[in-house]
């Protein structure tokens, strides 16, 4: 299983949506020096989008 294959399988639309959601999560916590829970939030986004 290769990275590119998985990306193709997931589809560019989903990948773009994941990126937007991840960046939005970062933006929401950008004012925090140590954004609590951001790792879990990003993990949840990927789990939510990738079966």
């Amino acid at each position: 299983m290769k990275r590119e294959e998985v990306a193709d399988e997931v589809g560019s639309e989903t990948m773009q949506r994941i990126m937007q959601r991840v960046l939005q999560a970062e933006e929401n916590k950008l004012h925090m020096k140590n954004p609590m829970g951001i790792n879990q939030e990003i993990k949840n986004i990927i789990e939510d989008e990738v079966d």
Binding site: M1, K2, I46
Partner: peptide, 18 residues
């Protein structure tokens, strides 16, 4: 395990893109 691997690769792909 396979699902976690797929998610890992998606995270890696996104990271490299970013």
């Amino acid at each position: 395990a396979e699902q976690a691997r797929r998610r890992q690769l998606v995270a890696e792909h996104l990271r490299r893109k970013l």
